[in-house]
């Protein structure tokens, strides 16, 4: 007969708990504490109560950043939830040469976000490929300000994000589609259901949990967008900084010797709370549907 000591499970779980405490729990706790101080990277902060949170209400740039993040999410969410599914349905078929298309659609995913944004920056520049084509074809007389107009810059970043994300979500949908029983499609076809009806009544319910997962992932990543906007705007967030995302604001306030860590932490916590919203909504939606 063997005796189990009371601490055996703790010994086994210890390394994982330590890891989580040091790299997850502690930074989170520290962020909360910092948000109530005026701390700088070289230390010496003092408790300032709710001052940083009061400043959030008075920050015009934050209002712009929140609007940008919400627009980003509202546009990316339907596009990146639906288009990859349609793409997955296209490349799901087993026909010669389909691997080439799957690879081609997936290629942007493995490219670095910064490199891709730099390339798009050149393409959308005043003297870039797109403006060259527009002017040569006579559609415009002067260059379109893709990178210097508030909304055009935002939508350029959205287009880049959608283009880059299609392949990633397509692969997730492909694995979900593989799990939809083929017999259901055969039975429905025998009963006279056409492709559209089979899509609505068999495919869509079959991939619904995946759709919810993908929607949650897109919501979070849209609210936390950084590289695309940062690189396309040369780190300045467009004229007046009106194209900044919340993460760009956090980066702006926290970097350098004189980083304003207190305010940056308050921004981080605000972003965390905002990110929870769409996730909880989608989870609730999924539970209801189930």
């Amino acid at each position: 007969m063997t005796h189990r000591r009371w601490f055996t499970p703790w010994l086994l779980a210890g390394p994982a708990i330590l890891w989580l405490a040091v790299f997850n729990l502690w930074p989170a706790v520290n962020t909360v504490i910092l948000s109530f101080t005026n701390a700088k990277p070289l230390g010496g902060g003092q408790f300032t109560g709710l001052e940083n949170y009061g400043r959030l209400l008075d920050d015009d740039q934050l209002a712009d950043a929140l609007l940008n993040s919400i627009v980003f999410m509202l546009v990316c969410l339907p596009l990146l939830t639906v288009l990859p599914l349609l793409l997955a349905l296209l490349v799901q078929r087993r026909i010669p040469g389909i691997t080439f298309f799957r690879t081609a659609f997936y290629t942007p995913v493995i490219a670095s976000a910064v490199v891709v944004a730099l390339i798009w920056g050149w393409v959308l520049d005043d003297r870039g490929l797109v403006n060259g084509l527009l002017q040569q074809s006579g559609l415009t007389d002067s260059p379109v300000s893709f990178l210097t107009d508030r909304w055009l810059l935002l939508f350029s970043a959205i287009a880049l994000t959608v283009w880059k994300g299609l392949g990633y979500y397509m692969v997730i949908y492909l694995s979900a589609l593989a799990n939809v029983p083929h017999e259901l499609h055969e039975a429905a076809a025998v009963d006279g259901a056409g492709p559209v009806r089979r899509f609505w009544h068999i495919t869509l319910p079959g991939v619904r949990p995946t759709m919810v997962l993908i929607s949650a992932l897109i919501s979070v990543s849209s609210l936390r967008v950084f590289s695309e906007l940062y690189v396309l705007s040369n780190g300045q967030g467009g004229p007046g900084g009106r194209d900044m995302s919340v993460v760009m604001l956090i980066q702006m306030y926290s970097r350098g010797f004189n980083g304003h860590l207190g305010y940056a932490s308050a921004l981080s916590l605000l972003l965390f709370v905002i990110t929870l919203g769409p996730m909880l909504f989608l989870m609730r939606l999924n539970r209801k549907a189930a």
């Binding site: 300045q236 004229p239 900084g241 970097r255």
Partner: peptide, 26 residues
């Protein structure tokens, strides 16, 4: 003038030059 201040100055000057706000306001 730290990093954040430098960025703010650039942003506001750009806003003024683009004509989206008055120079005084920027």
């Amino acid at each position: 003038v730290d990093d954040a201040m430098g960025t703010i100055v650039k942003q506001q000057f750009a806003l003024a030059i683009s004509g989206q706000t008055s120079s005084k306001q920027a």
